[in-house]
């Protein structure tokens, strides 16, 4: 099983770097900060509810091909507030439905999403596969439909079990395809995190959320968000 996990991770990293290298041809970048706060409440053994608040702030932007375009861009971009209901459907599987509202440029966008999650633990390594479909509704625009797959894994940095007051490593790798008004776009995300568990239900993580995405055949955009996640469950 360990060999399978190793191969899977190597393949994903390989794919990610292929996409990243090809993206250097003609592409823009944005650097910023992405703090998020996630609250999870277990209602009963089957059901959990979850509330997430996430904001984005840009710091710099430019084009890879022209270093003169690098400029400061200190702006608040958006805030997302989402609420989810999660139901366990098997020993390792769960279904989630949720609603997200986004506040951006004095506009409010609404998104519905549905998730199927498979989570497993192989000795020290925790693995979760997340499959998502979502529908975004923006004023005066056609509905955007997205499909997403995310592989997340974590492992403690001290020993095989994550104990309170210990650090852990987490890596998320996500692939997204989007369809809006007959136009397709895609995005790949790779986010390595360093996490710290105050307790099993109280964790903080810091990482670099790298996103590379295409919009039709026009250009590629790269985003580097310094991500700070705080998780609280009870």
């Amino acid at each position: 099983m360990k060999n399978v996990i190793k191969k899977e991770i190597i393949l994903l990293i390989g794919l990610f770097f292929c996409v990243s290298v090809s993206s250097l041809a003609q592409s823009t970048y944005q650097i910023g900060v992405l703090p998020s706060f996630t609250l999870t409440k277990k209602i009963n053994p089957k059901w959990k509810v979850n509330l997430n608040i996430q904001s984005r702030f840009s710091m710099y932007k430019g084009e890879f091909s022209n270093s003169d375009t690098f400029q400061e861009d200190r702006n608040y971009i958006l805030t997302d507030i989402s609420a989810l209901a999660n139901r366990k459907i098997g020993l390792n599987t769960s279904l989630t439905v949720g609603y997200l509202t986004r506040f951006r440029n004095k506009e409010q966008h609404n998104r519905l999403f549905q998730q199927f999650i498979i989570s497993n633990k192989y000795n020290a390594v925790g693995l979760a596969h997340r499959f998502v479909t979502d529908q975004t509704f923006r004023p005066n625009q056609k509905t955007e439909f997205r499909g997403r797959y995310r592989l997340a894994f974590d492992r403690p940095l001290q020993g095989n079990k994550l104990n309170p007051k210990e650090f852990y490593l987490k890596v998320n790798n996500e692939y997204l395809v989007s369809l809006q008004d007959k136009k397709w776009s895609n995005e790949v995300r790779l986010i390595p995190f360093l996490g710290y568990a105050f307790t099993d239900k109280n964790k903080v993580e810091i990482g670099i959320d790298y996103r590379v995405g295409s919009v039709g055949d026009e250009f590629l955009r790269n985003n580097f968000w310094t991500t700070i996640n705080y998780y609280l469950s009870w």
């Binding site: 996630t38 999870t40 979850n50 997430n52 989810l84 999660n86 769960s94 999650i117 989570s119 633990k121 925790g126 693995l127 979760a128 997340r130 997340a152 894994f153 974590d154 994550l162 987490k170 996490g195 099993d200 239900k201 964790k203 993580e205 996640n229 998780y231 469950s233």
Partner: peptide, 11 residues
């Protein structure tokens, strides 16, 4: 065993 919380992997 103590049940391991996986919220940070799922959300």
């Amino acid at each position: 065993f103590d049940f391991r919380n996986t919220d940070h992997l799922e959300y």
